[in-house]
Amino acid sequence: MNLTLHVWRQKGPSDVGQFQTFQATGVSKDQSFLEMLDVVNDKLELAGKDPIVFEHDCREGICGCCGFMVNGKAHGGQPETTVCQLHMRSFSDGDELIIEPWRSAAFPVVKDLMVDRSAFDRIVQAGGYVSVRTGSAQDANAIPISKEIADRAFDSAACIGCGACVASCPNASAMLFTGAKINHLGLLPQGQVERFSRVQAMTQQMDAEGFGPCSNHEECEAYCPKGIPVEVIGRMNGDLLKAQLRGRDS
């Protein structure tokens, strides 16, 4: 099939950027979206032009590197699918696709479709850790954890930090990401020591990075390739409120 691509081209963080139109011809329905772009890039390189820059690594939907907007939908909008696992059979011959990078003040564009998500790293660095006893290994299963808590913590831990929540949120809010990172530790017994200082430190960093507020639109949950539930935002809010009521100052 043949597609018309309107791709955002931007030389660097300070460049204004603009859309550029490409024809993708002979696209196989079995190709992934990134493979389709690889073919477009091959032709661009043969013609001596700058290839379209996009971030990618595992191409298995588990690393969190790839991600951009396809027709206004983060990762193309398929349920729980990253753009590397999005296949061209989701599209039809003659489709026009608008391909844009995540748009957020906290995610400056590096080049074309690639954005700098270091802001996420700094949020995690602010409190995404637990105190553990070092030295000899503990006995396995020494700390009992209920199935329900283990499941909820794992739902949060599934976050790959791709940034689709920020990208799809009308407010460019990072509450789903921050909530997931806070909860996957805060729900477990190992995470209790820093539970309240963690939520304060990480939400402060989230604000400092310039992410927006939550309006409970729930677009983040719908576009999250790992299906992180918005419940994590509620629990983060509740923990922050409890931290204040307990009078703890991080």
């Binding site: 907007m69 027709n71 957020s104 309006s215």
Partner: peptide, 25 residues
Amino acid sequence: RAKVARPQGYRKWQSKASTYASRTM
């Protein structure tokens, strides 16, 4: 703060979960 968080909007953006009520608050 929400405006500052996204200085440049999307050429195209599609809703998947938000409601008319939530978008018009």
